[in-house]
Write a protein that binds this DNA or RNA. Structure first.
Lengths: 341, 341
DNA sequence: CTGAAAGCGCTTACAG
DNA sequence: CTGAAAGCGCTTACAG
């Protein structure tokens, strides 16, 4: 592996000068020397060792992202945005999956800290668990003390700068859409119980019902986990309860896909018999049939903005936390309730 | 930031000993010392600086993966498998998107090399472009010379150990399925022209037709790019040509979704009027309507196996390249051709 | 089993 | 504008 000193020798200058010429230092270098060094570097195919540079500068130029599930299309889109934003600022991106597990998430944070990532980005909702939160809080305090910054692109379980979608408002909008269509018996499939996002979207659901003068009966709630399977099972459960439901709101699109699938399997027409709505507006939402009504979040933009906010923090700026509005997208999966049941 | 020497001081031993105690060295350490060091490390909340370790050992314990598009569900699943496999071997994973662009891919490879990743994994098909290939070949030679290993989870454009799905055989199977149903006029939507995978799947398509005694007319081919939009446009193009097509095979599922969407928009019944099939069997394939007939690849397993092969190579083993068989999954999007046109 | 020393490949005050 | 020197935080022969 060719190193700085190899270039130095070939260019007939000192390693210090090579470093300054190649690493874009603010220290002046004569045009002639600059050219000679660049030439030598090119000829020797020099690739600076970024671990060495990182050690010397105590800046890794790496951003660490923790996602709940890398194969979930929502996180895929977020990561895409993050990568764009990171690349634009000359950062690399580490992606770690937590599987929404507190232990694993802590392990990933520790690992990222050992890699000395400059910024930590939590892309999913925080985990509601006091023990975990206490530990995380302590670890992040350490991290900040050493100069790290942390950003969360979802409701946080510990203090952190945030860019988050309007989970509550978005869900309320979806519910309002349904109540305005005339629905009164609306079921809800939650997200995983221990994730903050789930709680907030559920709040939105309740608020939506209330503002339509409806009360929220717990029997209309079924537990999901942001997966297709979870959605299908929850839909089955809601039907089993025989509540005369005319609409089902799912905590996210993926869950809604499971609901649609289960209803289809049972020959229940959507939206003729039951309306279905989701949350997120991932690409597949307009590919399923019927096309899914949902609350749209600008997912990739969320990622890009997250990377930018992280870099702003690293640059010493004080960006404010922001809430991104959700937008109702009405497609074919919602309609007026059936005449009578 | 607390370092090895801090621990050493607190435990009353030398940094060398701390290193040996904490990094799982094969060098013996007395049980007593071991305990004292571990205690000190715990008390001081020690997190070893992996950049420093990497610099000293010239092993980063990082695997670098290059994907065509991180938000594509296929690559999402591959990355998930890769991460599992990497974690199992105590490696971290860097993920970089190339957008199927030769320039950007080369830049990502260079970046990963600068990070001194131990292994390089190309997850998508190689790019068919002589200039790019020459450059890549040279860069990879450098990389291997410095101890790096490279694995490709798809048809490679340059020499590399591979684990690849049976792209040709899988496509042939899909075509055979259609010809056995009675289809004779079958359209094909290709993948991006410069990607090797596209060429091989197209070969499979042609071979499938031939073995059914049909000849492949280029008018039945339309160019796609592995995107929904590309699939939709290609379907429109095929219809515009008025060839009396009764089936469309798409180079991948995502493309097939676009085809389905376009046909639906035009009120063309699938599979009543036209059958549609894809390739990959990503999760969404069974969520669209009609459910998509496709050739299944064990995507996440491919990723896991890729990470394992990379580690095997790093351990000095000589694993053999393997082809993973594809499996025909018949769902609702294919059926017998309509009586007459 | 333990430690002192050199080295990994960079950067950056400091001196000139 | 250039260079010598020290340092970043580890590991690992080498000596004992």
């Amino acid at each position: 592996m060719t190193s700085l000193s190899d270039i130095a020798r070939r260019a007939g200058v000192s390693p210090s000068t090579v470093s300054r010429a190649l690493a874009g230092s603010r220290h002046p270098v004569s045009a002639q020397t600059q050219a000679r060094v660049e030439r030598a570097a090119r000829e020797l195919n020099f690739r600076p060792n970024l671990m060495a540079r990182g050690l010397a500068t105590s800046r890794s130029q790496i951003l660490g992202a923790i996602v709940h599930d890398i194969s979930d299309p929502y996180f895929g889109a977020v990561v895409r945005g993050l990568e764009e934003g990171a690349r634009a600022g000359n950062y690399h991106l580490f992606v770690c999956g937590s599987e929404r597990d507190a232990i694993r998430e802590l392990a990933q944070v520790e690992a990222l800290m050992s890699r000395r990532v400059d910024g930590l980005i939590f892309t999913g909702g925080g985990i509601d668990d006091p023990v975990y939160q206490r530990k995380l809080r302590r670890v992040l305090a350490d991290y900040r003390r050493q100069g790290g910054v942390v950003v969360q692109l979802a409701p946080a379980a510990v203090p952190a700068r945030r860019i988050e979608p309007d989970n509550r408002g978005g869900t309320e909008m979806v519910v309002r859409h349904l109540t305005e269509l005339g629905h009164r018996r609306i079921g809800y499939v939650t997200g995983p119980a221990h994730i903050r996002t789930s709680a907030i979207r559920l709040d939105g659901f309740r608020a939506g019902l209330e503002s339509a003068g409806l009360r929220c009966d717990d029997r209309f709630l079924a537990g999901g986990d942001f997966s297709v399977d979870g959605g299908a099972k929850a839909a089955a459960e809601l039907l089993r309860r025989g509540l005369g439901i005319t609409a089902i709101v799912a905590a996210n699109d993926v869950t809604a896909f499971g609901v649609l699938d289960e209803l289809d399997r049972r020959g229940i027409n959507v939206p003729g018999d039951i309306s279905v709505a989701g949350f997120d507006d991932i690409e597949a939402a307009s590919l399923v049939r019927p096309r899914l009504t949902t609350a749209r979040i600008p997912i990739a933009e969320l990622g890009r903005a997250g990377a930018e906010m992280t870099q702003a923090l690293l640059a010493g700026k004080r960006p404010r936390s922001v809430v991104l509005p959700a937008e109702l997208v009405v497609r074919d999966s919602t309609g007026i309730p059936p005449r009578r049941r």
